[in-house]
Write a protein that binds this DNA or RNA. Structure first.
Lengths: 174, 174
DNA sequence: ACTAACATGTAATCTGTTACATGATTGA
DNA sequence: TCAATCATGTAACAGATTACATGTTAGT
């Protein structure tokens, strides 16, 4: 996910590492944070792969400051990453929201729609949420109050997303 | 998270590895899955730490089958893990839902309430969701339709959880 | 006979966390 | 002066992913 966030933010404008990290942290409302030990090695990797260009811009204010910008290969990689979003990018809510955040960087409207549709198809599957011995636990069958809470919250989340996706895709009930 | 899920499910009854893995996958509605390469080494680690006991129950049906059960140290560890839930266990929605799933294993009601309260305190903070240049992006200011979607979905999720937590804790608006 | 599901595991590789180290700038 | 924030990085370690390897049982 760090890779996608990095490419996405750099597609808007160049950033330096610290700045990038703050934007990554803000993206999730600081629910999860990216550590330096995760960021800087990730920058090196993307740079090695030719996705980002690094320019040392020391002089004016501080001493060292490395401006990161997206190369053409980086732009291509970002589009590929968004267009081919599948697996956990589609099934995992957190990851999907990151994909959504940068989806407008994908130029083809039908490509973008396909991404939304894949997510909607996943969410439209019979609530695969929480199974016990092969069949889903319905809220009314659950007696544990905290697990009822899990079902309540997860259900509300799911419904909100389905509603938004349907509205975007202009489709009704399946 | 694998650790917590493992201890939590084993606190209900013994499971063997494959079984445990299915329950872990079902817990998130298969949004994220646990691979064998993650599960079996994790079992070994918990076993090494004395949290789980392994009994080979071959014979009756299949050839090898290792029944895993929670030791007293494992029970203690589970309670500690739930009671001391903090950091990403509280801030990350996915992780918090896992904590909630097993929270009834924590015997003291005031301990359980404190966990809920910590989550509510985090959610009650002024929407730290998505900043641009230091100030939060309000939905009305956001023009990108996908980012509006992100704000819509994230907002609905947050509100649903706040409502449930307030109702549980029987508190009104802060 | 074949496929899917059950069941357990290992190895290479990648990625992330935690903790440390360095140093400049800004404001109380 | 002292703390906080800005800014970049490394090293040890823990943990996950991917892919592979092995063998059984149940259903078509």
């Amino acid at each position: 996910m760090i890779e996608l966030m990095m490419l996405g933010f750099l597609a808007e404008r160049p950033h330096h590492g610290y700045d990038l990290r703050q934007r990554m942290n803000a993206l999730h409302g600081y629910a999860r944070t990216v550590s330096e030990g995760a960021l800087y090695p990730a920058v090196s990797r993307q740079s090695d792969r030719g996705y980002i260009a690094v320019n040392e811009v020391d002089g004016e204010a501080g001493p060292k400051r490395r401006m990161l910008s997206l190369t053409q290969a980086g732009h291509d990689r970002l589009e590929e990453r968004l267009r081919d979003a599948s697996g956990f990018d589609i099934t995992d809510g957190q990851r999907f929201l990151v994909v959504l955040t940068f989806l407008s960087k994908l130029p083809s409207e039908s490509d973008r729609e396909q991404v939304l549709r894949r997510r909607l198809d996943f969410l439209d599957q019979p609530v695969a949420f929480q199974f016990e011995d092969g069949r889903p636990v319905r809220k009314k069958d659950e007696t544990d109050p905290y697990r009822r809470g899990v079902l309540t919250v997860a259900g509300a989340t799911r419904n909100a997303e389905i509603a938004w996706l349907r509205q975007q895709l202009e489709v009704g009930e399946p």
